[in-house]
Computed example of a mutant assay.
Amino acid sequence: MTKFLLAVHVLAAIVAVGPVTVAASMFPPAARRALATQEDTGATGTLRLLHRICRVYALVGVVVPVFGFATASEMGVLGSGWLITSIALTGLAAVVLGALVLPAQSALVEGRGTANPARLAMVTGLFNLLWAAVTVLMIVRPGSTTGA
């Protein structure tokens, strides 16, 4: 059962988190291009698509921690420091995405002047760094008995 849960957890992370990080990273440069051109060259359509990818895959991404908790429970590592750190970083990444990235993308898509593409690029980079740190912790697992 552990291998099944771990496989679903890893696949969900690849399928759900990957597209969010890529689409979120592509959004600020696309927003800069859209703001630089006065005529609609499809840039707003690109922004809408990237924002939709981020929203949809953010919701799909909820399965990642669900299966992560199930896997950790099966493995008996719920109290491990590396896992607790990963959980905290995952929660922080979710807050950054939900409270900073997605609202700023919405503002830019809707043409509200409250969002700044440079600031969005910065918080998107923070979001991506948080996921990179979680990924490293999942691979390295300090104190792991697997020999990895």
Rank of each mutant, 00 (worst) to 15 (best):
A12W: 00
V15H: 01
V15I: 15
V17H: 01
V20N: 00
V20T: 03
T21N: 07
T21K: 02
V22N: 06
V22F: 14
V22C: 06
A24T: 04
A24R: 03
S25Q: 11
S25E: 09
F27W: 10
P28Y: 06
A31W: 12
A31P: 13
A34H: 15
L35G: 07
L35D: 09
L35R: 15
L35T: 04
L35S: 11
A36L: 12
Q38L: 04
E39V: 05
T41V: 09
G42C: 05
T44G: 05
G45L: 10
G45F: 08
R48L: 11
L50C: 09
L50E: 07
L50S: 08
H51K: 08
R52C: 06
I53N: 04
I53Y: 06
I53A: 07
V56W: 13
V56S: 10
Y57S: 04
Y57E: 03
G61E: 07
V62L: 15
V63I: 14
V63T: 13
V63D: 00
V64N: 04
P65L: 01
P65I: 01
P65A: 01
G68A: 00
F69A: 03
A70N: 02
T71Y: 04
T71N: 01
A72H: 11
M75L: 15
M75T: 10
G76F: 08
G76V: 09
V77E: 13
V77D: 12
L78A: 13
S80E: 15
S80D: 15
S80K: 14
G81A: 13
W82G: 13
L83F: 15
L83M: 14
L83S: 12
L83P: 15
L83C: 14
I84Y: 08
I84T: 14
I84N: 12
I87F: 12
A88E: 05
A88D: 03
T90A: 14
T90L: 08
G91C: 02
L92E: 05
L92C: 12
A93E: 06
A93C: 03
A94T: 15
V96L: 10
L97T: 04
L97F: 01
G98R: 07
V101F: 03
L102V: 11
L102D: 04
A104D: 13
A104N: 12
V109R: 07
V109L: 05
G111I: 08
A115V: 08
N116G: 03
P117Y: 07
A118Q: 10
R119F: 09
A121W: 02
A121Y: 02
V123G: 00
T124W: 05
G125K: 12
G125Q: 11
L126T: 15
F127Y: 15
F127S: 01
N128M: 05
L130V: 11
L130C: 10
L130W: 11
W131I: 01
W131P: 00
A132F: 15
